[in-house]
Design a protein around this nucleic acid. Sequence first.
DNA 1: AAATATTTTTAAGCTTGTCTAAAAATAATT
DNA 2: AATTATTTTTAGACAAGCTTAAAAATATTT
Lengths: 221, 221
Amino acid sequence: MYQATTAEENYLKAIFKIAEKEKKSVSTNSLARALQTSPASITDMIKKMADKNLLNYEKYKGVTLTIDGNKIATELIRRHRLWEVFLVEKLRFAWHQVHEIAEELEHIGSPELITRLDAFLDYPKFDPHGDPIPNAEGRFTIRTQLPLGDLGKNIESVLLGVKEHSTPFLEYLHDLNIKIGTNILIKERTEYDHSLSILVDKKREISISQQVAQNLLVKRV
Amino acid sequence: MYQATTAEENYLKAIFKIAEKEKKSVSTNSLARALQTSPASITDMIKKMADKNLLNYEKYKGVTLTIDGNKIATELIRRHRLWEVFLVEKLRFAWHQVHEIAEELEHIGSPELITRLDAFLDYPKFDPHGDPIPNAEGRFTIRTQLPLGDLGKNIESVLLGVKEHSTPFLEYLHDLNIKIGTNILIKERTEYDHSLSILVDKKREISISQQVAQNLLVKRV
DNA sequence: AAATATTTTTAAGCTTGTCTAAAAATAATT
DNA sequence: AATTATTTTTAGACAAGCTTAAAAATATTT
C-alpha cells in the first residue's frame, strides 16, 4: 500500500468526512473550505492524487475516494479516535481538548503502534465524543441513536454522543457536567422558542436551547 | 519561543547529540552523516537556522547551539525519552522497537500533552535504555555508572544502561534476557581475546565479548 | 613551504505543497 | 436563450528542504 504524505492524508480525511454528509462527489470549493487552502491548490493536489490512484477525479466534477483512498482515510479516523480515547481515558484531558493533538498523532504510521494502543485501551468501539472507531478491518460499529429533541416528554435516555464537535459546544456541555452516559429526560418544552427543560442525571433541572437538543444524540433506556 | 519545523528540530537534536560526544563545534560533514543528507544541504540549512537564532555559525567553523536551540533540543530529547517509556512500560514494546516510533512522536508539540504524559508515567528519570530524561526545566539527572568491563572479578553490579543503541545490540541483549536492573558479576576474564564469563542474575553463566562488556553501563551493588 | 587531500561553500536546479491573478467552464437568473 | 454569477482550472510564482557539480577554503603530507 502506498504511503501517503501528511498533506495527502489530510485531503483523504477531509474528502471522507465531506462525502459522509453530502451524498454526491466532493467539490473543489468545499475541500478548499475544509482544508483552509485556495481552490487552485486543491485542483493541483487532487490531480496528483488521482494519478496515484487515491481519488477518482473528473474535471469540473469533483472527487470521490478510490478503494485505496478510502482505506487510508478509514485508518486515519481509526488512529485519530483511538488517540482521543487515550488522551481522555489515560491522560485525563477533557473532551474539548483532544482534537488538535489527535490531529497530529493520527499521522504516525506504525501499524504495530496502533495495534498495541488498541489493546492497551481495551478495544474501544467509540471515541470520547461517541463517534464509532473503525476496527482494524475498517468496519464501524453501527447503533441507533437519535437527537434528544426528537424524544417525547418524560422519556428517560442516556447520552451516546454529540453531532456538533466545536470546542465551544463541548466546553458548554463540560461546564454543565453533561457527558457520555449522562441520564437525560425532557420535563418541559417551551412552545415559542422550542427550548427544553431537562432533568439531568435524575437530579438537576436545566434549560437548553433547541439547537443544543438537536446536537445531543441519545438512546432511550 | 520560535516554533521550529520538524526538519529544524532534527537538526537541533543531531547537533546536540554530536556536541555531547565531541567537545568542539559541530562540523558540516558530521551533521551530513548524522542526518543522511548532503553537506551542501547542511550549509544551506544551518545558515537559515543561524538567522533564526537557533545556531551560532561561522563559515568553515561549524555550529554550536544557541540558548534557544539548546532549549528546543533538550525538550525534544525529553519528549523522545518519555514516549519511549510509554511504549515500553504501557504498550509492552521491546526496547529495540521503540526508537523509530519515538522519533515521530517527539515532534508533537503540545506542552500539555507532555506534562500529562510525564505524570501518567509517574515522572520517570530514565528511559528504557537507561538514558536520563531531562525534567521540564531541562535538567538531566546525573548518576555514576561505568562500563562492565572496568569492573574487577566477583564484584556484583546491576545494569543501569547501554552505551550503544543499535537495534542488533539491543536485540542481542534482549535475547539473552539482559535488561535494566539485571544483576551481573564477572567470573572470569579470558586473557587473549579479553572476553568475559559473567554470571547473570546469580543463575546463568554466559560469555560476552569485550566490546559488549564496554557497552554495558553498570553500578556496583 | 609547496603540493595534495579533505572539507565546506556556492551555484543551479528539483519536488512538494502552497499562493494570486486571470481564464475557462458550469450554474443560476432574468 | 442570453446574461450574470459562481465554481473550477490554468499559469506563473514562491518557500522549504533537498540534490549534484564545481569552486573555494582549510587541513594534511611531504
